[in-house]
Every structure is written in structure tokens, then in C-alpha cells.
Design a protein around this nucleic acid. Structure first.
Lengths: 150, 150
DNA sequence: AGGGTTTAAGAGTATTTTGTCTTAATTTAA
DNA sequence: TTAAATTAAGACAAAATACTCTTAAACCCT
């Protein structure tokens, strides 16, 4: 699996927030309902994202979380890095520590290119772009397709 | 992590076999020693590869495992598919089941290209090519670099 | 034939990931 | 000021992954 489940859930919920109108907070309960993700698990994931500065949270009624930046300014890479870390984009395909230009494994050259391709794709893609595409083409971001773009 | 540890170990040991001269069997004990991988864990991984038809095994003295095909005929993709399965090459980046051309997620188009890039890199690379490169440039395939190309 | 060597198979353990539950702290609004 | 709503935090449980160990089966050699 390329990304952990926590990371995938983090991406889906970030996408959800990017599609929300206005700059108010969205409650985690609503997100967990709409996206069909365990409330408590999602809470922990979003805590990581707020810890990383990508979201900010607010307690109490009318509380919830929201993006700290405009969706157009948040790349998927930032979210992945915040949850799964950057190891995927630096590690050796054969799992050898310290593999790099100086001390490569036989697969290093080829894998480095592929790896950069993954990173660039994530860096090149922002939340707003995906939210607008999803809204325009009515694409799903949940398993059952129950989510309606806002 | 892109590949499981079992898969990474499977790749390293396949690479080891591809670098072995002659067509005799190589004992799993020797491989686990040379590659610094737990003997019993490696045994189970190689059983998967023999089950998939990529290797064949032989018991008793002079026993061990060997590739069923020439190293030049074995792509990394075959090994990864045998151990980790092909899910990585078919799954949705957002984890949505059934995501594809017909029922895509907002990230599908971009991810499909990236995903194919990973697959093609693995399909395009064979064991002999890596073994020769490793031998020629004296590259490591173990953490401590203790392995000497045969 | 018999003993040593090697893979096969499966049970058992440890660690990480995933998910659940409870309690505390904060905030809004009546 | 009090009650309801909401996130924060941490303990706990379940599942998947990563190993470890033991016993069985097959094989070679003397």
C-alpha cells in the first residue's frame, strides 16, 4: 500500500474541507458521518494535521476544524508528509538505509526517478483543484458515493 | 512504505540468486547469512516465490532454491506481484474500491499515470540487469554492504 | 539402512497499524 | 452560571505485519 489508511482518510477529509463554502469550522462529527470514517480515528488524524499547521481547530458549539490556507495553496504532498512522513520520497526501494547517489543500490537510479514522479504528482496537485473537479464531474470521495459536494 | 519488508527481502534474495554462477541450488541458510535476513522468515518468503513458480526448491544436502528462469527473464514486477500482490498497481490513491475509468475519484487520472510509472519501471527491470550493474559497480544489496558479488 | 542436511509447514510471539472507548478541557448559548 | 457541544488526550482492543521456534518431510551420502 502506497499510503497508510490514516493518510488516505486525511486526504479525503482535507478534500472535504476544501469543498466547504465559507471560512467557518466544520465539525469532525459531520465529516466522519459524511465520509463514513470512524469519528475517533478521524479525530486523531485531524489532530496530526492541526499539529502540522495545515488545519486549525476550535472547541465547543460551532467548533470543528478548517484549513489554515486556501485549498489552492495546499498540495497533497503536504498532507501526506504530515501523516505518513517523507520516508516514501527518500527511501530505497530495496530498503537499504543511506541509499543515495553516494552509496546507491543497483536499483537506485531507476527508483529515484519513479519516486520523484510520485512526489511531483502530489506536489503539483492542490485541494481546490480536486474539489472543483469532483464538484464539476460529481465524483465520489467515499466508498458508497453517498457524499454530495457542497 | 511502497513495498512490504517481505517483498524487499524477496527482491534482494532474487537478486542474489541471479548473481549466482551455474544452475545449482543455493541454500536458504547461505542466503540468509549473506543477506543478513532471518533464516526462518526468508524461508517463508521464498516458499511464496516457489509457490508462484518463480523459484524451485530442493531438499536435503546440496538442496536449496534457484530461479526457474534466466535472470534476464524475471522482472521485478513478477516478484513484487508474487509477494505483495498487484493491488498497488490497481488501487485508488484515496482507497476507494472500484475506482477506475468508469467510476473515478477526483485524483484518479493523475494517480493512474503515476501508478503506471511504478509498474512500468518494475516491468522494465530484470534481475540479470541489476546483478550485472551491481557486480560491475560493486554496489551493495545489504545494509552493512558485507555482501560480495559472486 | 541410517544419520546428517535441508526445505515445508504451522504454531507461537512481538511490533505496528487501525480502530474504539472513556474522561477531561474548552467554548457557545440560553 | 449552567448545560450542551465539541475537540484533546490517553488507555484499551483488534487486526495486520514481521518475525521466531518447533516438528515433519524429503533428500543425499556413507
Amino acid at each position: 500500500m502506497l499510503l497508510s489508511k490514516a493518510c488516505v482518510y486525511g486526504l479525503r477529509s482535507s478534500l472535504f474541507l476544501a469543498s466547504c463554502k465559507g471560512d467557518g469550522y466544520t465539525s469532525i462529527r459531520e465529516m466522519s458521518d459524511q465520509l463514513d470514517i470512524s469519528f475517533h480515528f478521524l479525530t486523531k488524524i485531524l489532530q496530526e494535521l492541526t499539529g502540522a499547521g495545515l488545519m486549525e481547530s476550535h472547541k465547543g458549539p460551532k467548533g470543528g476544524v478548517r484549513l489554515t490556507k486556501a485549498g489552492s495553496e495546499v498540495s497533497l504532498y503536504e498532507i501526506v508528509a504530515a501523516i505518513d512522513g517523507t520516508e516514501l520520497f527518500t527511501e530505497c526501494a530495496l530498503g537499504l538505509p543511506g541509499c543515495g547517489v553516494k552509496k546507491p543500490c543497483p536499483l537506485h537510479d531507476k527508483w529515484a526517478g519513479t519516486r520523484d514522479g510520485i512526489r511531483q504528482m502530489l506536489e503539483d496537485t492542490n485541494l481546490l483543484e480536486l474539489a472543483e473537479k469532483g464538484k464539476k464531474q460529481n465524483l465520489r470521495i467515499t466508498e458508497d458515493g453517498g457524499f454530495e459536494w457542497i
